[in-house]
Write a protein that binds this DNA or RNA. Structure first.
Lengths: 218, 218
DNA sequence: CAAACTTTACCGACCGGTAAGTAAACGTCC
DNA sequence: GGACGTTTACTTACCGGTCGGTAAAGTTTG
């Protein structure tokens, strides 16, 4: 892949916003909300963490709902730009699946607050906002599930009777869960953990000859 | 308690409390908290869902923290009584691991609110309560990880280089995540989903000959 | 001058929690 | 069996505090 920037998780995300200050506020808010939950985080706390007073914060954001919506949308943008974009052109379904799982886990482990939030916190959005996010999440989920269905059609899904829907959720579970337990000061780095997740995912879904050979090309 | 009652997930949990009314309050509260988060659920809402006024609720529970602590402790009791008790006497590590994963998933899928809460919501407890819960969670986690370590010692852990700690977390992720996506009105029943989780877990961790043969005895 | 704040003061709603009173059931003593 | 306390399971009314959010006026920076 020539586009080295695509997989560069350390690239400043602030660039995606027109305004860097607003971006840093979002980031701060995202980390707080990730740590304490949306309902458990007050606008006052967010303001203080961003070195602002509450009215100062309200100069930048319209209200709490809007703040959550923007953060969540931003997280979905990241997922599309860094995971889907990288994987969608891959024809080989096993390689595609591994790229998705690995990329998603890697993104999650490198981006503490921001992405992890879209895990939960769909409540707290108003109905229209929630509908938008739900639609985007479903699109991503279908993208993941399609890779599994392609494997099944090719007769390579190892317990061939696995339900693709449940399988997709289970893989997502491994990925998402990392956001809860992983600590940066732990024994393993984020990339090592992402590798483990991807390896286990492929073994869970393919016969293990297949799992080792076909997917380590990348 | 007879041996049969141990695995009967449909047994009334209320019996475990001396008082049935309090048990139903806990259950109602657990479902609400599971759906909306601890911070996002007010004592007023809990009271109304239990057909009480707020002071009526406070007649039964000391305060919000205590309520969460009791629910969480109860969930840990269930896990110990129904999953650990069933698996700890099994010597064969693969069978033991499958029993743990399958039993935990099954319990989670049959008990909507109550058990799912201990996933999160360790904040909202005071330090001493949190220490107690954290200790119990760690004991359970070690129990799961030990099964993986035993497999590794026997040379049967399939990608032999898997880190047992990360592996344990990843299996837990699949299990816990079911509480987020599973709906009772879906296509598959709870036992079918639990089977899928257990099957994928075993394939993720064992060579697939091993995964199919050794663990279907049960 | 305008943008990006600040400080101060405030709003109504709801939060967790409590004080005080009450209606019904229960035990018990005569 | 009727009167009398006691206990159980609540209720209405209310507390101080914090929530999300705003108004208004002043201050700093490019």
């Amino acid at each position: 892949m020539t586009a080295a920037a695509k997989t560069d998780l350390t690239a400043p995300v602030a660039d995606l916003f027109d305004d860097a200050r607003v971006a840093s506020i979002y980031r701060t808010a995202a980390e707080l909300i990730h740590a304490k939950g949306f309902a458990g985080t007050s606008m006052n706390e967010i303001a203080e963490a961003a070195d602002l007073t509450k009215p100062g914060l309200y100069y930048h954001v319209k209200n709490k709902r809007e703040l959550l919506f923007r953060i969540t949308s931003f997280a979905m943008d990241l997922l599309d730009a860094r995971v889907v974009a990288q994987a969608e052109s891959i024809d080989e379904p096993a390689v595609r699946l591994r790229t998705i799982v690995h990329g998603h886990a890697r993104l999650l482990l490198h981006e503490p607050g921001a992405l992890a939030i879209l895990i939960d916190e769909v409540d707290g959005l108003d109905p229209q906002q929630r509908a938008i996010i739900t639609r985007r999440k479903r699109r991503y989920y279908d993208f993941l599930r399609d890779a599994i269905i392609d494997l099944q059609r090719a007769g390579r899904l190892r317990p061939a009777t696995l339900d693709p829907t449940v399988t997709a959720f289970n893989l997502l579970g491994m990925i998402m869960w990392t956001a809860r337990w992983y600590r940066v000061d732990g024994a393993l780095g984020p990339d090592a953990v992402a590798d483990t997740v991807a390896t286990m995912a492929m073994h869970a879904v393919l016969g293990d000859d297949d799992a080792q050979q076909r997917t380590t090309i990348s």
